[in-house]
């Protein structure tokens, strides 16, 4: 195994970490209107819906920001390890990435600011930002990654020569929808695991419905992937993803919430792995006959850079995992609507 190949795998791992982790906080954000009432309050009384929203957001509160760093690290690692890949992908997906940035910005601001004022209009507006961002962001990530695997028109200098419309093809749009559906299922499993009372029950019911929709859509997506860029490995991983998803639905049904969450986490990991196996040995194939595909070899940095990065990853990734795990352990307790803190709110 040479350094470029190791980094191809590591970038796959970083994307997997991102999808497994931010997948559930996207799902929780998207489920606000489903599990948290309509957000309206009657006569100033705090209703159950508002308290549920508070529980849902408190459940992801200590974690969502750290989850998002996986995306930044994946981006930074692509820049360092495969500068051509980073340069081509980020300039090719210009407008979708602009929209992704806007979605992440308004969503993050919503998560930080929503609870900082005791004002219904204020909360409703930030709720819209959280919900909108939590749906749009995974959709765009799905569209982008599916386009990478599918291939885009790159000329001989690795420059993108398509337009915005080139990116809006059927498989990629389906990829976007699957990412949203899987996030919602994953988020519902997370809520069932992290809350108690009626919210927990409601989360399990939603997980079942969302899971069935994801399963159907994901099977179509994986069938496309196997057909388009098929290899034995891709097929096996697609099957693993499907089995894990079905398994998580069964686990959810029988009340094994931890297992259900692990199930959707494995689904994300297997799906991401299938994408990267399908991509190999390219990192960004071209669809043009006279174009040039970006490959692991021709997009990579020098061995020196990759070696330095490898040492850093070897030392620091375990440390990151360690304190991330500690943070999840600290906040391991189930949350309930009747055990929230009395908030200090400024009018």
């Amino acid at each position: 195994m040479d350094y470029p190949f190791i980094w191809f795998i590591l970038i796959g791992v970083l994307w997997t970490g991102y999808l497994v982790l931010e997948g559930f906080d996207f799902g929780v954000g998207a489920l606000l209107p489903v599990l948290g009432g309509n957000g309206a309050r009657v006569g100033g009384a705090v209703d159950e819906g508002e308290n549920r929203r508070r529980v849902m957001l408190t459940a992801i509160g200590p974690h969502w920001d750290g989850n998002e760093v996986w995306l930044l690290t994946a981006g930074g690692a692509m820049f360092a390890a495969f500068p051509h890949w980073y340069a081509t992908m980020f300039s090719a997906f210009y407008l979708p990435l602009l929209l992704l940035l806007v979605a992440l910005i308004v969503r993050n601001m919503g998560l930080e600011y929503r609870h900082k004022r005791d004002d219904d209009t204020w909360r409703r507006r930030w709720d819209l930002a959280i919900i909108g961002g939590s749906v749009v962001a995974p959709f765009l990530v799905g569209v982008a990654l599916t386009n990478v695997v599918r291939g885009v028109p790159l000329d001989a200098d690795f420059e993108y020569v398509g337009s915005l419309w080139t990116l809006l093809n059927l498989p990629s749009l389906l990829g976007g929808v699957v990412f949203v559906a899987l996030s919602v299922t994953h988020g519902a499993h997370f809520l069932a695991l992290k809350t108690s009372g009626r919210l927990r029950e409601a989360a399990r019911r939603v997980a079942e419905r969302a899971g069935l929709v994801s399963a159907v859509l994901a099977v179509v997506l994986m069938a496309w992937l196997v057909n388009a860029r098929g290899s034995v490995g891709v097929g096996v991983l697609a099957v693993v993803a499907a089995v894990a998803l079905v398994g998580s639905l069964v686990a959810n049904r029988v009340g094994r919430e931890g297992l259900a969450f692990v199930g959707t986490a494995i689904t994300w990991a297997a799906a991401a792995a299938a994408y990267f196996v399908a991509l190999h040995p390219n990192v960004m194939p071209t669809t043009l006959a006279n174009g040039a595909s970006l490959t692991i070899e021709n997009a990579a940095s020098t061995p020196m850079t990759l070696q330095i990065m490898s040492i850093a990853a070897l030392v620091f990734v375990p440390i990151v995992l360690l304190y991330t795990a500690w943070s999840y352990w600290v906040f391991r307790r189930r949350l309930a609507t009747d055990r929230l803190a009395t908030p200090v709110l400024v009018k």
Binding site: V69, G75, G76, A80, A81, P83, S301, T302, T305, M309
Partner: peptide, 12 residues
């Protein structure tokens, strides 16, 4: 990228 990317990745 070979030079500039590494500090950015390490920053993350």
């Amino acid at each position: 990228g070979d030079i500039f990317g590494a500090p950015l990745a390490l920053e993350a």
